[in-house]
Structures are given as C-alpha cells and as structure tokens.
Design a protein around this nucleic acid. Sequence first.
DNA 1: GATCGCATGTAAGTGGTTACATGATTTA
DNA 2: TAAATCATGTAACCACTTACATGCGATC
Lengths: 190, 190
Amino acid sequence: MAKKNRTKYSILGLLSLAPLSGYDVRQIIEEQLSYFWAESYSQIYPTLKRMVEEGLATVSVEEQEGKPDRKVYTITPDGLAELHEWLLETPLPESRRIELLLKLTFGGQVESSVMEAHIRHEQAQIKSMLAELEALETALLADDSDALGPLYQLINVRYGLAVTRSSVGWAEQSLEMFEEIRRREEQRND
Amino acid sequence: MAKKNRTKYSILGLLSLAPLSGYDVRQIIEEQLSYFWAESYSQIYPTLKRMVEEGLATVSVEEQEGKPDRKVYTITPDGLAELHEWLLETPLPESRRIELLLKLTFGGQVESSVMEAHIRHEQAQIKSMLAELEALETALLADDSDALGPLYQLINVRYGLAVTRSSVGWAEQSLEMFEEIRRREEQRND
DNA sequence: GATCGCATGTAAGTGGTTACATGATTTA
DNA sequence: TAAATCATGTAACCACTTACATGCGATC
C-alpha cells in the first residue's frame, strides 16, 4: 500500500504538456518548480527508461548539430491514464523535517549567538527565494491567455509567496526575541 | 561529505535534557515536535543501540511493576560534544516536495472539481494543525519560568503558526479562483 | 472479548542523494 | 585554458517507511 514513486508522476505530468528529453525535464523542474519540487538526473534517467518499458512513454533519438543527441520522450495513452489516476488521489500529508527548528529546540545548549546566526542565514535564503517567486508571479500575471495552466501555476506561486512572506515576518520577530534570550542567558551564567 | 543521520541528533538533543527510553523519545517527538519533525520506532531503536556502541550514550534497564521493562538511555560527555558540534553547523536547506502543488501544476488535465477538493482537504488539515499549534502556544505563554528552553520553543511554535495561518489564507484565496477556473474550463469544452 | 497503552525490536524494500564517468562545443 | 552548457547515464550508499513480531495489563 501507498507506493509513491513521485518522480514518475512529475515526469508524466511534464510529458503530458509536451514531448521532452530527460535533460529538459530537469531544466523545467529546476527553473519553474524548484520552490516546491526537486528531481536529480540520477532519478530522472532510470525512471524514463522504466517508463518506456512499462509502455507509459515512447522514445525517439533526435540528432543535433554541434550538440549531443537527445532522447525525446512522448507520453502514451497509458501514460496519460496513469497520470489522471494519480491526479484523482488525495495527496498524502508530507512528513516535514525542518532541521533549523530541531536545532532551535536544543538551542539552549549553545550560545544564543549561534542560533541567531542560523536564523539570519535562513532569513537571507528566504528573501532570495521571495525575489524569485515575485518574478514568477509577475511573469504569470503578464500572461493574458485564457488557458487553465497559468491559473494553476498562479495558485502554486502564491502558495510559495504566502509561506515565504510569513517566514520573513517570523524571522524578524524571532530575532527581536534574542534580546530577552541574551538577558536570560547572562542571568544563567551568574 | 554531508552525512545527515538526523535521527541521531534528534535523540541526542532530547537526551541532553533528560535520560529517556526509546519509547519516551518517540512520545515526546510525537506530542511536542510533530509539526516539524517525525521519527518512527524502527529508526529510534537501532539508532539508540548504535549510539551506545559509539559511546554517545549509556543504557540501564529499569524494572517496572505491571509494565514491561524500560531501557533508559543517558547521554555521555562524548554525546554532548557531538550534539554541540552539530548545533554549530549551518542547517542545510531542506529539499521540499509538496505533492499537492505538483498535482495542481497538472491540474488542467482533470476536472477542476478534483483540484478544488484537494485544496479543501488540505485546508481542513491545516486548520486542525492550527488548533494544535494554538494550544501549544497558550501552554508556552503560561510558562513563567525564566529558562531558555520555552523561549526557543515559542520561536518554533510561532514558525508553525505563521506558516499555517498563511496557508489557511492561501487556501481561501485559491478556492475563490475556481470561479474563474470553471469559466475557462467551460469555454474550453465548447 | 477486543482494543488500547506500554515497551522493544527485526526484515524487507525503496526512494533519493552524492559521487563518478564521458565527451563535444561555446564562452570567459 | 578553464569553466560552463548540453547531454546521458551508472554505482554505491543510506535514510526512511511499512509491515511484521511479541507480550503483559488495564480498560471498555
């Protein structure tokens, strides 16, 4: 029960929009979906191979000038059917593990400046992600087609924006708490 | 490079606060940290065994009346040192994979009611988590000790609260977009 | 009589990461 | 001449999940 194999579905989804090579799949995920999804080549290539064996996609080699050959994969009706089946299933809750919060839980074991630095580092990461997401949103809002895709993408980007913005706020609020943390820390060292 | 083995550190952290059994470790993580961390028995027990072999903890069997024996683990100076080392390291960015957003990305492939249901389901999950987090925050605010631990826990709970609240808002905003999505969908089917 | 809580574990499988391997062309 | 981009893959490892296994006592 509960076989995931989500790599397969991310690939099926992308192939349902256009025929692509493994390299393309990676590029698209990295450029457009990286704020909520990741795949590495070492997952993509073997999965594509298996998908052809299972009849979910077909391959054809495309020769290029000055560049290596590409293997272009096209989704089959079976592949489309499997994608649709998966889309109908209720997404299972993600078991998240946030290392920063685990460290903060035991933060009292080291100097508070260490935890402060961790939060500042996180804040910087979040802010650069925020900039990327804002650029993505701008691009999507400029798209005035009446297709469904961009609307769903907007929903996704706004999820990222909502969570990211609230994280920035959290980081600021948390940094303010270090005044009180330092007070208690000094007290403890007396 | 980049060996994680985060189970070890979650256990070391808890043992740094008090001697515990494997069962205790699981209970605490489940009750207090579950909004950002998870461990299963099948990770905890073997890890504890290894930790004793590595000299990071010691065991002693505690007999109980009417209940099975407990193996209580106590952290050693070496264990504390390893915990401190880990706490100093900058947390690596978590590679998140959010299945709901992946499904939404390809949402145009199925009827919009399916995606709407997914978001509603997610919304319900988030709201029940929000209630739990609010209870945790209330408990922490009632704690008027001047220890460091509760402050760091407050920071953590507020992270959960910030993200969860913004997710509720996102879900509401997204559900409103389905009016437009349905319009475009009907247009497409003409 | 069944299920829940306490308590500890093993076995099997797989999803996913990191490093390694190759090689041409273009750009800095 | 070094690095980046295009392009495809394998090998090894391990982190983690799910299912299985056991057994007592208390509660429903």
